[in-house]
Amino acid sequence: MKSCEILACSFSEWYPHFKKVTFPSRVIPLSQEFVDYLLADNLVLRSDQALITYDKGSESTSSDSEDDEEGWIKAESETPALEAPHFEEIDKKIASVIAEFGGKVFVKLNWSSPKDASWIALNNSLQCHMPADVHLLLKSSDFVLHDLTQPFKDCEDHAMNSEPVKYDLVLRKWIEINPANEFRCFVRNKNLIGISQRDDSIYCAHIEIEKEDIVRDIVSFFKEQIGPKFPLDNYVMDVVRQRKDKIVLVDINPYGITTDALLFDWNEDLLQTSNSQAAECCPGTPDFRFIPEESGIRTNPLRRYCVPEDIAHLTSGEDPYKLMDLLKLRTGQTDSADSD
């Protein structure tokens, strides 16, 4: 995998060629100032009600309200107060696109969406209804951080690549997608060699029943819409089969370890092996893999992003010493408050 292949899979590179077969989207170029804001350790979000700040393990909320009924402890910080960033031009564009797309959008950068950060949103969803929603998800995502800091990490020429990346904010019209109808397709040497159920944490009985139709629809879509137009020989595409004979392109990803192989395996190169085996029986037919029974489902890999690790350890009892530290800290705060 080379850096030029990563760049070719950037959303703004492929979207203009496939507008008719994917979801309506808008691309907003990001300034270096906004990129620096996303990379900063602290998080400051301004709303009409409050200024919310977050900085590496500490949380504070300040408001103009004098109401202290919730028992908030107010104290002056020894460090200078953080100012909420102002990106009026970008935020206006975001608000305009949200309005254009009916009040809610899906957000991503060049390659990744902040799907690992959905737990932090009020509705546990990637739906964004205002610019602050976009800021919060992007600032909270490790996937987005990877895009910003090491997009070429797994490339064989990553040490030689010095080309600066032009980052874009991508806002897509929010479309409800049934995860049971999403599939990841592997293209090698311009041939569709493998198809995997996209969400391998669920069992979908209909896939077994409709597997031949699913493969037929995806192969036809690839041959007619994607294969002749996309320049790379090797890549991975995500599609959703909305109904029989109706396939929609969701995304295009690099062909390599950067992209989750799901029910295949990059390390053992099962894609090539499986394809050669399938070709002996049915030439030109991709290897289709899905969860055939409920016992075959896998743990959702995004679960480990849902809450901070320390909290997970506390609730599971995995690390009793952290619970002891928390109780000591709480006891110390209570004693301090009593003395005051």
Rank of each mutant, 00 (worst) to 15 (best):
D200H: 08
P16F: 10
F152W: 06
P80F: 01
E268P: 06
Q197L: 07
D325G: 00
C155R: 07
C155P: 04
K246T: 13
H17Y: 08
E13R: 15
D213E: 06
E163L: 08
N189F: 07
A99H: 15
E163N: 11
N300V: 08
V236G: 03
E163K: 07
S201N: 01
D245A: 05
R184G: 00
T149V: 07
R241W: 01
D55R: 06
A132W: 10
N275C: 15
P151D: 10
I291W: 02
A205R: 11
L171C: 05
I291P: 01
P301D: 08
S60Y: 00
L314I: 14
G227T: 04
S274E: 13
E309Q: 08
S31P: 00
G227Y: 02
K173A: 15
P308K: 12
K74T: 05
H129V: 14
E210L: 15
K74W: 00
P151K: 15
W111T: 01
W174E: 06
P283F: 02
D133W: 15
A312M: 02
L126K: 09
G227E: 06
K328S: 01
D55A: 07
I52M: 08
V44R: 00
P29G: 04
Q333F: 02
R243C: 04
T61E: 04
E280M: 15
A279H: 09
T334M: 14
S339M: 05
V27M: 09
E309Y: 12
S60E: 01
R216P: 00
V187N: 14
S162L: 03
I175E: 13
V107K: 15
S201Y: 02
P231N: 03
S12P: 08
R216M: 07
E69T: 03
V215F: 00
N123C: 05
V105E: 12
K2Y: 06
L263C: 06
L38G: 01
K328M: 05
F230P: 04
P16Q: 08
L271G: 11
N189I: 04
P292T: 08
L327R: 13
L136D: 11
V134P: 01
A84I: 02
L136M: 14
S336H: 03
A121T: 15
A337M: 09
S162K: 10
A95Y: 01
T259H: 04
C281Y: 10
D91N: 08
F264L: 11
L30E: 03
H135G: 10
D68V: 11
G103M: 04
K93C: 08
F288M: 11
V134E: 07
Q242I: 13
D147I: 04
G71N: 03
R216V: 05
F222E: 12
M324T: 03
F183M: 06
L323N: 00
Y54H: 07
P283G: 06
L327H: 04
L38V: 01
T273C: 09
A117V: 15
N178F: 02
K108Q: 12
A75V: 02
